[in-house]
Design a protein around this nucleic acid. Sequence first.
RNA 1: GCCGUGGUGGCGGAAUUGGUAGACGCGCUGGACUUAAAAUCCAGUAAAUGUAUAAUUUGUGAGGGUUCGAUUCCCUCCCACGGUACCA
Length: 797
Amino acid sequence: MNQSYNHREIEKKWQDKWSESQIFKTQIDADKKKKYVLDMFPYPSGAGLHVGHPEGYTATDIYCRYLRFNNFSVMHPMGWDAYGLPAENYAIKMGVHPKDSTKKNIENFTKQVKSFGFSYDWDREINTSSPEYYKWSQWFFLLLYKSGLAYKKKAPVNWCDSCKTVLANEQVVDGKCERCSREVVKKDLEQWFFKVTAYAEELLNGLDNLKWPEALKAMQRNWIGKSEGALIKFQITNDKCQIEVFTTRPDTLYGATYMVVAPEHKLVNELKDKIENFDEILLYIEKTKKKSELERTELNKNKTGVLLKGINAINPVNQKEIPVYISDYVLSTYGTGAIMCVPAHDERDFEFAKKFKLEIIKVIESSIENADGAMELSGVMINSEEFNGMSSDEAKEKITKKVGGTLTTQYKIRDWLVSRQRYWGAPIPIIYCDVCGTVPVPEGDLPVLLPEDISDFRPTGKSPLESSISFHSVKCPICGKDARREYDTMDGFVDNSWYYYRYLDPKNENEFCSKQNIEDFMPVDCYVGGAEHAVGHLIYSRFFTKVLRDNKYLDFDEPFPRLINQGLIMGSDGQKMSKSRGNVVNPDDVINEFGADSFRLYEMFMGPLVDSKPWNTDGIRGQRRFLDKIFQYFENFKYGKESNDELLSLLHKTIKKVGNDIENFRLNTAISALMIYFRELSKQNNLSKEYVDSFLIMLSCFAPHISEELWEKLGNKDLIEKESWPKHDDKLAKDEKVNLPIQVNGKFRDMIEVDVEISEDDLRALVLSQEKIKKYVDTKEVSKFIYVKGKICNIIT
RNA sequence: GCCGUGGUGGCGGAAUUGGUAGACGCGCUGGACUUAAAAUCCAGUAAAUGUAUAAUUUGUGAGGGUUCGAUUCCCUCCCACGGUACCA
């Protein structure tokens, strides 16, 4: 296609000028209102930027430029999430040191990000793998440790045998490792955890007040997984042992006809001598151990289990003896690892009972009956002695009380497993001493540097840091005797749980961030990024902020009150972009051919930011065409003295609409409004300054390079960035005359031009005198005359 | 199964509190320019009937309802996408 301007030259020119003039440096000014606009920082992968990255980045850039025009002090930083599994796996694949590959990838990403002309304050750039940064990640670990929120314990944890490390629950997707898709297995290991569960209730309740997408809030609610119920103890016959269960349905206790304990339940061992078929039980436990989590949950239709022979439990509500089974459909990690089973009112228990031919007793009646299966709704109590006739909801508390149980709340969310048996992460700042035990590294000794004298950092199941003697053999900070360092490293998600604080004070050597800076800029006013971080990063970050608050570092509850998820950019075939499908679009190629301005405009014009939408190369041609026309119009343009009332009215409407749309991230309609205005503008010549300047200022948010170039061509000496957002005048934005659609009996019949302020009586007379309308009204009587000012007129006969 | 989001031309999408459905862009069709093509410019473009006009009818996943009027609100259902799932 014929291009009217050289985007390569122009875009480079203005990027250099912006950089030289430091125009995007955050203005810290007490007189200005602040806005902190944050992008989710990328991890610098080897593949480079994909077209999804600039989608969110362009949107925030437009918003920030708009805010600067409106005299806000804007904090808009960028950095690199450089530690963690993805970066390390890439280095291993390439056979290089992660330090080197990370450095190279960051250089490439920087070049790519800069080619879009984003208005970041680059002085605040951070890199989570630099010692200046991870010193404070380690400081956070110590803060959590001192607050009793970091602890080490042996527990069944997720293990990926391909990445050779443990994983947090949040990093297991469909029973598989998020990074390599290997099926995750459970292993009993001693690991470090952060006590996220301590904040479960607050994390849940806090969601109500956040301006976040509903879908995302729902995901977090679901992840936190609150259920209210009761803990009830069942006595084992002829033994001191008791089985405690958690149930959300204590009202169904009369229908409990058997119990099931998880294979990992400690009771199995305790009752070893009394279980007559212990060999059989052991065999079953061995079998479940070999199953992956995926197998254990996927085969949920076909339940397995073994009866504990010689053991019975007593239902505390009616003293009936009921059998006890062991089965892997009960999870050891939720509730008490044991359940009471009510097959009449629980689908899973029903399936198990059918298979093992167990008694099914109905204890609740509901108008909606389920012919074949369990009735899980609430209703009226039956077969429940003194509770018969009571509503089941009411019976919950009463029955719990009768059997001496306690009402309680359970959550699905687990503590966050943060230790990793991997090289590329911040070392955990802990020392083990034979005399003093677990000793935190004194703050003054931070950072604990990641050793570089390691020849082989490939994962083996043990942390590669173990092989560096200079690293792990140390003196105990308390007693001075020989001790060793913890050689596991931290999950990369620890680093990015607090990065938005570091941007505010990236060079501070004494604090993770000064109180003043937190006060000045937190919380983040607008956070934009992908939905994939719904339950990992976004829960951890909220958790960190609450911990900081409880340690008096700040006084707000939530780091991100407003959050927007941008949608995915799909391939032109409507499928997710992937190498194997061959539908990947490389942003470098697009910028080279059409320019960054066209790219930015196109991605914003595709549709609403939050929707996922397919890429279409013809679409970007349209945006380039728009810019070419603008360039041509301005090439020989000189300010004149002409004015034009109609155009002026359109201008003020456009200013209002574009401003509104930007604030609400409706960038597709903002661009459409600019196109409409330009179409009318380009029909005129010799226009005075305001018609032209306002347009270029608005355009510069979206297409900043070409706008600067044209601004200069018009003879302006300073950067367009230094201008202010044009003010719109509501009076001018309003029309004096409107085209009013006229309906007869709800059907559109005519359009007449009327004064906006016309009275209803005048309008009625005018409308009824119209030939077209007369035809439809005919001789019939007008029973109703509806007029909505400026909108519509409807005549009912 | 449960939770969430959505369903509008050939395509991406637009439609403040219910008020001309299809803005804007892409594509397509016709024309101008050109030896020709590309690019550019002009016109048209929801569907059906009709005479490329006029006019009429239908139309926002399906079916009902409220209303003078429904893409928008209510009910029932279908479909797609995303999340989650033996959580007792």
